[in-house]
């Protein structure tokens, strides 16, 4: 018998790219995107009674949990008030809970923060924490009970903005935690910007990477590529990226580098040879620095006052 599955959805809710997308051809407005994402969640919940979802949003400069709602009591009441005989009750709970939160958050956005990059890392971290909590439930009250089996979790990330290389290190840390938790990160790229970190995320965690070429068929992409569970993927394959850009960003200027210099002790990456590692404070031998041709003194590490 297969285990229940959990999907954690990460939505990029930054207003600027969504405004651009709603004018692009073919257009995809945020509202119609959310409708399709909801049907996708319904489909996931329809697969099995025990399946569950959580949704996290990346807003400019901060991240929020959108579903499940934090206060459990209010949700239970709310769902019962308006129960509808034409909709499966589970779907209804998700619809109402999620839409209400998204509207709240989008309405609460302020002018000043709209330019900040989306807090994708924050959302990813929250999502991983949530999954970790699902995998390690609190011990049951009755010690003779076997704890419920941990669900197979995976993350589906919808991206509409380009990479923010500033967040390279925390982002990679997220990927490694996901690897450790055995959580695949599926990436659904809706706009056309370059995202090499997301490539790496899906590749390293064994998730799917799909760039949506025909935006009007988003739902088809979602149900064909992102719905299949870890077990099913052994039979019906999902698309992955055949060319993965493995370039990294340097630790000193957060720029993506073709050739970097790596600290031999802690594996930090630098775009230029430096005299001392800024992460672990290892002093590099002056001979090596000379061999690399870099002076190292005018670089990042020079402020440490090492004499060459």
């Amino acid at each position: 018998m297969s285990l229940p599955a959990h999907i954690s959805l990460i939505l990029d809710l930054t207003p600027v790219p969504w405004a651009a997308l709603s004018r692009a051809s073919p257009p995809l407005a945020l509202r119609s995107f959310l409708a399709q994402a909801l049907v996708f969640l319904h489909a996931h919940l329809a697969l099995r009674n025990e399946n569950s979802v959580s949704v996290f949003g990346a807003l400019p400069g901060r991240s929020v949990g959108l579903y499940p709602p934090v206060s459990r009591g209010s949700r239970d009441r709310g769902a019962e008030e308006g129960a509808d005989e034409n909709t499966f009750h589970v779907f209804q709970q998700v619809d109402e809970g999620l839409m209400r939160r998204v509207e709240e958050e989008v309405a609460g956005l302020e002018e000043v923060e709209e330019d900040a990059p989306p807090a994708l890392v924050g959302a990813l971290t929250k999502s991983l924490c949530y999954i970790n909590r699902l995998a390690n439930p609190p011990p049951p009250l009755n010690p003779t009970d076997a704890p419920p089996p941990a669900p197979h979790a995976r993350i589906v990330l919808f991206s509409v903005s380009p990479d923010a290389s500033v967040a390279y290190i925390p982002f990679m840390n997220c990927i490694f935690s996901a690897q450790k938790l055995k959580v695949p990160i599926d990436v659904c790229k809706i706009d056309d910007s370059e995202v090499i970190f997301l490539h790496q995320a899906s590749d390293l965690t064994g998730g799917a990477f799909v760039h949506v070429d025909q935006r009007e068929a988003l739902l088809q992409y979602l149900s064909m590529c992102f719905l299949s569970e870890t077990e099913t993927r052994k039979t019906l394959a999902v698309p992955t990226q055949d060319k993965v850009d493995f370039r990294a960003a340097c630790f000193c200027h957060k720029e993506i580098v073709d050739i970097g210099y790596v600290c031999s002790v802690c594996l930090s990456i630098f775009c230029k040879p430096v005299a001392q590692c800024s992460t672990c404070h290892t002093n590099f031998s002056p001979d090596t620095l000379v061999r690399f041709g870099g002076v190292g003194m005018n670089g990042h590490g020079a402020s440490n006052g090492t004499t060459a």
Partner: peptide
């Protein structure tokens, strides 16, 4: 079962009259 569900889901939103060949997706 899992695979049958995924097949249904993959085809659910297509309006094709002739059907779709899914064999390319099979591992």
């Amino acid at each position: 079962d899992d695979v049958a569900r995924q097949i249904v889901m993959s085809l659910l939103w297509l309006d094709s009259k002739t059907g779709v060949d899914l064999t390319a997706w099979v591992s």
